[in-house]
Design a protein around this nucleic acid. Sequence first.
DNA 1: CGATTAAGGGAAAACCTTTTCCCAGCTAAG
DNA 2: CTTAGCTGGGAAAAGGTTTTCCCTTAATCG
Lengths: 347, 347
Amino acid sequence: MASDDQAVPVFPKPVTLRDVAARAGVSVATASKALNDQGRMTAETRERIRETARSLGFRPNSLAQSLLRRRSFTVGLLTNDTYGRFSLPLMSGISDALVDAGVSVFLCNVEEDPRLGQLHVEAMLDKRVDGIIATGKRIDRHLPVDLSDLRVPVIYAFTQPDPDAIAFVSDDAGGARLAVEHFCRLGRRRIAHVSGPASFAVVPSRAQAYRDVLEEHGLPAMEPLLGSWSEAWGHEAVARLFDGGAEKPDAVFCGNDQIARGVIDALRERGLGVPNDVGVIGFDNWEIVAEATRPPLTSVDMNLAALGREAGLTLLSLVGGKPAAPGIRKLPCRLVVRQSCGHPMDG
Amino acid sequence: MASDDQAVPVFPKPVTLRDVAARAGVSVATASKALNDQGRMTAETRERIRETARSLGFRPNSLAQSLLRRRSFTVGLLTNDTYGRFSLPLMSGISDALVDAGVSVFLCNVEEDPRLGQLHVEAMLDKRVDGIIATGKRIDRHLPVDLSDLRVPVIYAFTQPDPDAIAFVSDDAGGARLAVEHFCRLGRRRIAHVSGPASFAVVPSRAQAYRDVLEEHGLPAMEPLLGSWSEAWGHEAVARLFDGGAEKPDAVFCGNDQIARGVIDALRERGLGVPNDVGVIGFDNWEIVAEATRPPLTSVDMNLAALGREAGLTLLSLVGGKPAAPGIRKLPCRLVVRQSCGHPMDG
DNA sequence: CGATTAAGGGAAAACCTTTTCCCAGCTAAG
DNA sequence: CTTAGCTGGGAAAAGGTTTTCCCTTAATCG
């Protein structure tokens, strides 16, 4: 048994402010002030203490600081997006905005499980997070947790907020406009729209933007084809669009990149060239999909990282005590042009 | 200015042990003991204190506990896998293993940036994480941070460990065996292997397993085709396999799901039926890809969530002071059978 | 009835840092 | 020489909890 001891690594005791003070021959109070640029002392004393701290490798214990300041420099990110398709770009933006302020992020995946949600929220609250950001995989659904009346500020990003909360979402309608207007500018005349289930809030909102833009350009709007978010539906939609006797579209704006992928593949199978015969634009700009289509897919990017940054910075200012008006802030999307949408048709 | 005040929400002061003690008419010491099932007191006193705590909604301040116990009940997960394709399943397993122990996870994406890595590691160390799990998007690469000589235990998962560290990785060779043996069992006789760049450690290791299994079954091994991890390479590989005059394969084992997808699509374009003419198996079991292929893709799953669980539990026991032998632990993969591999050929 | 012992509960230290006050010593003004 | 004022630095409280030790009271034993 005793011989096992050598196998368990022993970690050195962290050096405390006390150690620094003792080594420098001053009180902890003075040491603290020296390191924080506070209080009065000779420049020489201050530098001596600093040098001592450096040489000892002193790092202040964040827990002690937090306890005193009632601020832990941590925030929680709550999500139910297991695959992280939306959460991770968001997380990346949040982290980016916060890391320089010394704030770390707890990532909590609550799936669809209220018990798990409760568990995570309580754990975070106990750890005195400074705030919570809630996000999800669907913009029109609540997380399976109640975040009202928490003791900390809460910000919603890319998910349905409680009333009177602060929320950041992408401007879906604006994103759709970007795509359809791009087609118009390129000279496409018969632009179709293939999207997901009507039960998703983004679907009607993008569809409306689609209709609006076409009307503004005096072009005919076709009835949006609503189905599922899958490639398979993209295939089927192409069949519906091109099998009938009706006039064929020369462009398809898709509700996500997987549908777009299905559309592109189906078009090719029919001998229709993308983008020459039919232009295609997707939504989400999921690079792994968008770059694998042939040709590479033009797609609307929701700027999730930027959205995360905004959310992070806003939370930070909220934590700092600055008030912020409740409400929903829509952040613009961005069209990432690759090859599937084609070039101007006449030139 | 003053009228703005109503806009900033005021959060109620958390209730402390002191409050509970005062309300119950005992000292904080007694209150603490009552809530932690320690010390001696009448059952009646204990229950009264507990009831008071409940009614006040008391939750112990984790920071204070951590300070005292020198244990923060947090761990850090370090990754450079921006898209979270590998990190997130892992994270999910880790979180799963730890949440019941009240441990929360800091997720830190360090990209490929040593400065960012340093920043995150220092932030975590300052926050007195109990341990760190390092992971990445590639099993044979280091993160851009130095994790040796940290003051906390470190565990590597799905990434290259420092020597003498504890690491969990998936058993790639075993996974490859699973796939190839499955083909053999199904009666396939000419099994090809299409994989990624030789510079990835997993590539030769899976290729060797491929050769071994074929030899064990007395079947001919073809030279593995190495290229990139993309669909496009899957396409090209099919051209190479089926254009020459050589005998055509009746099965293709692919190094990842994207290659497999490319292979399946290319086979269909040539009029070859999957799985009847050619069976296909992928690697990674990335559901979003595996379920979108036609037919759905049979694939090797690396069990990353389970790997995460193991890593989490091991870290926990390490934090608890139990020694663990350094070294690399390989966890078995699992074959997820869908339709692309076909049924037994003769019956 | 006196002496032990056990039971119930409290005081205080400890964890580590920050911050507010205060004190001693010195200089300059009156 | 006295007094006010400044300077450099320290003591102590605060933040919230846990834990060790101690004290008081009641019960048991001889």
